[in-house]
Write a protein that binds this DNA or RNA. Structure first.
Length: 849
RNA sequence: GCCGGGGUGGCGGAAUCGGCAGACGCGCCGGACUCAAAAUCCGGUGAGCGCAAGCUCGUGUGGGUUCGAGUCCCACCUCCGGCACCA
């Protein structure tokens, strides 16, 4: 060994990255005999530059991937780009750059930036969704969905973003003001013919999380989004010739005796035939107003619960009473049957409506022995409510009433038990250019026909007019428009909408298994070997978008016989979001985006990685505050020093860093007596080995649980112990060498460069990233002595230092013998002594008086 | 309004099958080195009282259970995220 140079990551980091890449160190081989392990982190949208959030999101799973590989698994950790999407098209409109050029330039730049992170991505499997070699198969999948009846075209009231000039999926409309997820503009409703995927078919199965290990918040969000409600559908006859009974949905059939009116959504098909002539004008005005109103305007009138009586009556099948039929926009056309029975006594919305329009309110379910409340609806529903004024059903509990009334209606053919869901089918067509064209042609004779599979991909034409007009730019290209009907070979028109980019990302994780296959979307053997993904990481903001769509895709493809598993991702972990220093989401417009390049050029990649992992719990994120990055850099500098300390307690001088041990053992009060690690050093090599093996155990456990911040703090602890050991003259010992080797191996996943560099300098075989993960010795994890706190009445009064296996009787004797304990006992005899083995002793004094 | 997650030193955060609150780091104070500075190293650092030994208080607020509560229970306050009239 020669004199250690100054710690400067810039001198070795790029060289190691080049060597790893040249050696294809991270390539996942299909034929590798070790157990396959598929670890995936969400691929990014190529917006232009990598920002600090990308680093944060990728470093966590990279650490786990590296550890798993050291633990002997054949790990695949791929990366790619979700490269279709609106920003590319907006760049074309704003700057006149073609989306193809813009996107390719961004992908190239971000790929380079990604490589500077030192992640173990297997770039040989890269997937880029705007590549025709990829979207060919996205289109092929659409055709399979179409043939399976899971893709269909329908006229529907849809959410339309007036700024982006495009329809949106329900999942892409956010907030109380119903704004576009991308640009924030409030959406409006339009009736348009659109393409849908039949996600509702899988509503029930999507509620089943029993096979997967996902974060509770995501499971809850999906469960709420799917919104399963059990109840009944009930037919109400109407007093009008030739009009069928109106079917309502309710979760509370037990309250039917309190149904004193009916409300239809303004869009309900029975409104027209049931509107009395004298009410026609008012009904038309109300319906037109409801159609015209934006969601914001509807919100502002939310509490008013306005509606119009349409002049007809229905008959309550239980009371046989005539009840008026109203329309109101608080009844939604797309949920349930678009019609409700109004039970004002037991529903707050119905109550407000009945109060406004002076409709009868009749309480039919009450607490046992209770009386009707005044001025409010009674909506409680527990085992303690009973039916009143409900004919033969009076006296039943609410639960019994639900079952009995549903059964009676079914017996009469007037209803049945029913389940409804909030989830709607996924609207996937977009009136934009930069996406995979929907592979459909329209023939006058044969209607919508899928493009034959051997004609895929339907290529995006280069030459179109990007100006947003509300119809797809593809309509401006005549050559693209004209097609041939696959049935009759006659002239046909091509579909010009493209697919939602979430379709691309609903199967990209399958493509990684065989990314270069030109014959099919994926090689079944490879997919069966690698899939499902063992562990997937990404942002929780995709809870009801990507995370739900991907599950739908896998279930649908399973039923088509294309896949043999039920869930795409066996385990999911969500990272938190790094916010700007201003506590707002990072965005170019806010100017709060942090560029990692500035940091890496100063501190190197390892420091930035470690710092990001040290900020706090990985799933929490938080506002950007780089103030403590220097501390993490100093830590790596200490690792650099202790790993290269020479034997004989004479650490080498590090140029630029004065010898840190210059005071050791000479200056009172400066030798580290206050250090917690001193106990370890006093125990000599055994103490250092104890510290080493505790670290091996705990760092491994922390990594596996994504607790990177505490893992790093424990490695700091081991490094400090090494510093003390060096200062105590242990630098040449076996225990010291073992501790340094262990520290480097533990650090390798988080700081891959410095660990490789120091490993190499210690003359160890290349590469540290191919070494086995260290094992700990359980015997060495146990300390020689433990310190037991001694409390009197729950307050700390003294400490005992004993061997871990000291008998309880002996501990009690020692505790009671303590002078400080005796001082607090003041001669009293303890009432009892509580001992928690290995944790503490508490001496309880007699109660006063 | 409904659902979910949080509130711990000056700061980021540790510690929850109830058991030494504040690990680790930042910042700050003091010291070593230096002509000086930077860098580095060593020590101190929750608050109050005390010369000290030590004592008291202290995890959003108010109650409770317990030998013992940041952790459990009840009632609140507050911040963040999700949903948006779902019958």
């Amino acid at each position: 060994m020669t004199t250690t140079e100054r710690f400067d990551p810039r001198t070795y980091e790029p060289a190691w990255r080049e060597r790893w890449a040249a050696d294809e160190l991270y390539r996942a081989d299909d034929d590798d005999p070790r157990a396959k392990h598929y670890l995936l982190t969400m691929y990014p949208y190529p917006s232009g530059d990598l920002h600090i959030g990308h680093w944060y999101a990728a470093t966590g799973p990279d650490i786990v991937a590296r550890m798993r590989r050291m633990q002997g698994l054949n790990v695949m950790f791929p990366m790619g780009f979700d490269s279709f999407g609106l920003p590319a098209e907006n760049a074309a409109i704003d700057r006149g750059v073609h989306p193809w050029e813009w996107t390719n330039a961004n992908v190239d730049r971000m790929r380079t930036q990604f490589r500077s992170m030192g992640c173990m991505f297997d770039w040989s499997r890269e997937v880029v969704t705007h590549d025709p070699a990829y979207y060919r198969w996205t289109q092929w999948l659409f055709v399979q969905f179409f043939r399976a009846g899971l893709a269909y075209r329908a006229m529907a009231p849809v959410d339309w973003c007036p700024k982006d000039q495009v329809v949106l999926a329900r999942e892409q409309v956010e907030g109380a003001d119903r704004h576009c997820w991308r640009c924030g503009t409030p959406v409006i409703k339009r009736d348009l013919e659109q393409w849908f995927f039949r996600t509702t078919k899988y509503a029930d199965e999507l509620l089943d999380f029993s096979k997967i290990d996902w974060p509770d918040p995501i499971r809850l969000m999906q469960t709420n989004w799917i919104g399963r409600s059990e109840g009944a559908e009930i037919d109400f006859a109407v007093e009008a010739d030739g009009v069928a009974p109106i079917r309502v949905f309710t979760t509370r059939p037990d309250t039917i005796f309190g149904a004193t009116f009916m409300v239809l959504a303004p869009e309900h098909p029975a409104v027209a035939p049931l509107t009395a002539p004298e009410r026609a004008e008012e009904v038309a005005a109300y319906t037109a107003a409801a159609r015209r109103e934006t969601e914001i305007e509807r919100m502002s009138t939310e509490r008013e619960r306005k509606g119009v009586f349409i002049g007809s009556h229905a008959v309550n099948p239980m009371t046989e009473e005539r009840i008026p039929i109203w329309i109101a926009d608080y009844v939604l056309p797309g949920y349930g049957t678009g019609a409700i029975m109004g039970v004002p006594a037991h529903d707050e919305r119905d109550f407000a409506f009945a109060t406004r329009y002076d409709l009868p309110i009749r309480y039919v379910v009450l607490p046992r022995g209770g009386t009707a409340p005044q001025g409010e609806a009674f909506v409680a529903h527990t085992a303690d409510e009973v039916l009143v004024g409900s004919g033969d059903f009076t006296g039943m509990t609410a639960a019994e009433g639900i079952a009995a009334i549903t059964a009676e209606l079914a017996r009469r053919g007037q209803g049945e038990a029913a389940i409804t869901y909030k989830i709607r089918d996924w609207l996937i067509s977009r009136q934009r250019y930069w996406g995979a064209p929907i592979p459909i042609v329209y023939c006058d004779e044969h209607g919508a026909q899928p493009v034959p599979e051997d004609q895929l991909p339907v290529l995006l034409p280069h030459d179109v007019d990007f100006a947003p007009t509300g119809v797809s730019p593809l309509q401006s290209n005549e050559e693209f428009l004209n097609a041939t009907c696959p049935v009759c070979a006659g002239p046909a028109r091509r579909e010009t909408d493209t697919m939602d980019t979430f379709v691309d990302s609903s199967w990209y994780f399958l493509r990684y298994a065989s990314p270069h296959d030109e014959e099919r979307a994926w090689d079944s053997a490879a997919v069966e070997d690698w899939l499902p993904v063992d562990l997937y990481t990404g942002g929780a903001e995709h809870a009801v978008l990507h995370f739900l769509y991907a599950r739908f895709f896998v279930k649908a493809l399973r039923d088509m016989g294309q896949l043999n598993f039920d869930e795409p991702f066996m385990a999911v972990r969500n990272q938190g979001q790094i916010l700007g220093a201003d506590h707002h989401r990072m965005s170019k417009s806010r100017g709060n985006v942090v560029n990692p390049d500035d940091l890496t050029s100063r501190f190197g990649s390892d420091t930035v990685r470690c710092f990001l992992m040290f900020i706090g719990p990985w799933d929490m994120g938080g506002p950007w505050n780089p103030s403590s990055i220097e501390g993490v850099h100093r830590f790596l500098g200490r690792v650099w020093a202790v790993a290269q300390a020479g034997p004989g307690g004479q650490p080498r001088h590090v140029p630029g860093m004065p010898p840190p041990q210059s005071l050791a053992g000479e200056q009172p009060g400066s030798g580290g007596e206050g250090r917690e690690t001193l106990g370890a050093i006093e125990g000599g090599q055994r103490g250092l080995r104890h510290a080493t093996h505790v670290a091996i155990k705990e760092v491994g456990e922390d990594y596996a649980e994504f607790h990177f911040n505490t893992a790093l703090s424990k490695m700091m602890g081991l490094t400090n112990a090494l510093g003390d050991a060096r200062d105590a003259g242990l630098a040449g010992t076996d225990a010291y060498a073992e501790a340094v080797d262990a520290l480097l191996l533990l650090l390798a996943p988080m700081a891959p460069h410095i660990s490789e560099e120091l490993w190499s300098r210690r003359g160890k075989p290349y590469s540290i990233h191919q070494q086995a993960w260290p094992a700990y010795d359980a015997g060495l994890v146990i300390a020689d002595t433990i310190e037991l706190p001694v409390q009197v009445d729950g307050k700390l009064r003294d400490r005992l230092v004993v061997a871990p296996d000291t008998a309880p009787d002996e501990i009690e004797r020692l505790a009671l013998a303590s002078e400080r304990v005796q001082a607090h006992l003041k001669g009293r005899t303890p009432r009892k002594v509580v001992q928690i083995p290995g944790r503490l002793v508490n001496i309880v004094t007699p109660k006063n008086d």
